[in-house]
């Protein structure tokens, strides 16, 4: 049984349809990528899984349980964490307090919370140096690391990453993906949404391609990297 099972999902903002008939699975310890252009419905899909957007059709099941209409804060308790598009750290709160908030669903004892925070600082040393600074003073790359660290604070079984490369310099993007790579094999499944298809395909086991709100292609990431359709549409490589 897959950890996350989305079937026939439809999403809309009022009358505007964002996604239709989306079905996908994420297995335990798997990294799955969703690639597609701007406005293809990738972010809406993650919002549907995290509970920020109520689906119009279909179901979302998490480790067998139907969570289609569950409030977002309850999903965090079950083990789903989303690092949202545009990072969305709490700008007026310190780096450490952002991490404290990330663990809100967990009710850790004080010592446990401290240990959890130190573990994140070990993973993201750049954040440790800035632990008492307000998050708004961080660079874009540091904010992205904070957003991921904050999501990890709830000890998720499924981590949803929305466009971790957005607005970052290429060298910082490489750092961020290196960190995502280190999360492999820690018992966390990852569903990553990315416009930078080559990076997403390199870090993931499997991938889905989404176009105008529908899944048009899926398969092993290694295969998709060499698929001429993908290379032409998303990797900026022409045929031949």
């Amino acid at each position: 049984m897959a950890l996350l099972e989305v079937s026939g999902l439809g999403l809309a903002y009022g009358p505007i349809r964002a996604a239709e008939d989306i079905s996908l699975q994420v297995g335990a310890d798997e990294i799955v990528a969703i690639i597609g252009g701007n406005g293809a419905g990738k972010t809406s899909l993650l919002k549907g899984i995290a509970g920020l957007l109520t689906p119009t059709t279909g179901t979302v099941r998490f480790s067998g349980e139907d969570i289609t209409r569950l409030a977002p804060h309850r999903r965090v308790g079950l083990g789903i964490a989303l690092s949202p598009e545009g990072r969305q750290v709490f700008p007026d709160q310190s780096v450490a307090d952002n991490l404290v908030l990330g663990a809100y669903a967990r009710n850790f004892a004080r010592g446990e919370l401290e240990a959890e925070i130190e573990e994140k600082f070990a993973l993201f040393p750049r954040l440790a140096e800035r632990r008492n600074q307000p998050a708004l003073t961080l660079s874009g790359g540091e904010q992205q690391m904070l957003a991921i660290a904050r999501a990890l604070m709830s000890r998720p079984r499924l981590l949803l990453l929305d466009e971790p490369s957005l607005g970052l310099a290429p060298i910082i993007v490489r750092d961020v993906f290196r960190i995502i790579e280190t999360l492999r094999g820690r018992g966390i499944s990852i569903l990553i949404v990315e416009q930078m298809a080559n990076l997403a395909l390199k870090v993931s086991n499997r991938a889905y391609v989404i176009e105008s709100g529908r899944i048009t292609l899926d398969g092993k990431s290694a295969d998709l990297l060499h698929d001429p359709r993908i290379r032409a549409a998303y990797l900026g490589v022409s045929h031949g």
Partner: peptide, 17 residues
């Protein structure tokens, strides 16, 4: 801290649980 998180963004606050 949770209240300030909600003040910044209810959606993101709900993602914290």
């Amino acid at each position: 801290k949770a209240t300030r998180a909600v003040a910044h963004s209810p959606d993101v606050a709900s993602l914290m649980g």
